[in-house]
């Protein structure tokens, strides 16, 4: 058994010890008073409790979480307490390099980038998080239904998805933005409209895989309702994978927003986002590199933290990864 697996099994001392050579000294008769040690004396630990315990004992997860917390706090409070407003121009102080007055410098219109970066963080975090979660949730529900029921339900849902994914996403997005404007909410909605199909497909595949497994069959034989089967028997098994794709979907959503602002469908000014700031920064990075690197590094670090946290979360949640 690999070192990795041992680490993963955490506080429960490893089954791996069984592989070491056995000698007679290892066997000692059980003393009189301890005959009943195999009786369960502590309360049984529930799935979620166990997951929580695992995650709080993971240093990497806690450091990542701490970083994310700092970013969130700054996003919430920095624009409120900052010296400058994020949308106020100062045409006399354009493209100022980072200094004591403007910690992150200023942009082409002399707007303070410290304020803009943290306002942008709000948008990016909200759009990133919900733009990742909402399509996944829709996908889980729809994919779950398709995968579990199969037959014509599956058929209809899958055909809708087959057609839906082939229509350029820009058409949906343009339509939504046109009728609902282009704030963070319509953006999340647009992403949901585009993104649910992919995750529904994936979930369906996973569910079909698990549907014929013994524990599901057992649950079914015992009279479990479809809801119970999907959400209690199958779902925990695919949750780990879902968490990973969720952490992958967050940067996806953040970049999607940047890409949309690149082609004119992103967050409308005066609001801004990290994606948009780095997009603008990238357009003249040779002249004002700080305008690219500050938002760029923040995006990368945040996503790194999310990824590492997601990894630990997956380890904590997936029943396959512990025994």
């Amino acid at each position: 058994m690999s070192v990795a697996e041992e680490r993963m099994s955490g506080t429960e001392k490893g089954a791996g010890k069984g592989m070491s050579p056995v000698s007679a000294e290892d066997f000692v008769p059980v003393p009189e008073g301890e005959r009943d040690t195999d009786v369960i004396v502590r309360p049984s630990v529930s799935y979620w409790r166990d997951a929580l315990r695992r995650i709080t004992h993971d240093k990497v997860a806690m450091v990542s979480l701490g970083f994310i917390a700092v970013i969130v706090l700054l996003a919430v409070f920095a624009p409120v307490f900052g010296r400058y407003n994020y949308e106020t121009n100062n045409l006399m102080a354009t493209n100022v390099k980072p200094c004591g007055e403007h910690w992150f410098g200023t942009d082409t219109l002399g707007r303070d980038l410290w304020a803009r970066v943290w306002v942008g963080a709000r948008v990016s975090l909200v759009v990133g998080l919900f733009g990742a979660i909402v399509p996944q949730v829709i996908g889980i529900v729809v994919g779950g239904i398709a995968g579990y029921f199969g037959g014509w339900v599956d058929m209809v849902i899958m055909r809708i998805i087959d057609v839906g994914v082939c229509i350029p996403e820009l058409i949906y997005i343009t339509l939504i933005m046109l009728y609902l404007g282009s704030g963070p909410l319509p953006l999340v909605l647009a992403m949901a409209m585009v993104g649910w199909m992919g995750s529904a497909r994936m979930i369906r595949g996973r569910i079909m895989q698990f549907k014929s497994r013994e524990f599901v069959l057992a649950s079914k034989t015992l009279g479990g309702s479809p809801f119970h089967l999907i959400f209690r028997s199958i779902f925990p098994n695919i949750l780990g994978q879902q968490v990973v794709s969720l952490t992958a979907a967050i940067p996806g959503a953040i970049f999607m927003e940047a890409y949309l602002s690149f082609i004119g469908l992103g967050i409308q000014s005066p609001l801004t986002s990290w994606g948009q700031l780095s997009q603008v920064g990238a357009s003249n990075y040779r002249l004002h590199p700080y305008q690219l690197f500050i938002p760029g590094i923040l995006i990368s670090l945040t996503i790194l933290a999310l990824y590492l946290f997601g990894n630990s979360l997956r380890d904590a949640l997936d029943p396959h990864l512990r025994d």
Binding site: P251, A258, A282, I299, S300, I303, L304
Partner: peptide, 14 residues
């Protein structure tokens, strides 16, 4: 792999 997914394409290309 995190770098690969956390750097926007336009920055990477540039």
């Amino acid at each position: 792999s995190v770098l690969g997914v956390s750097v926007p394409v336009f920055i990477l290309a540039a």
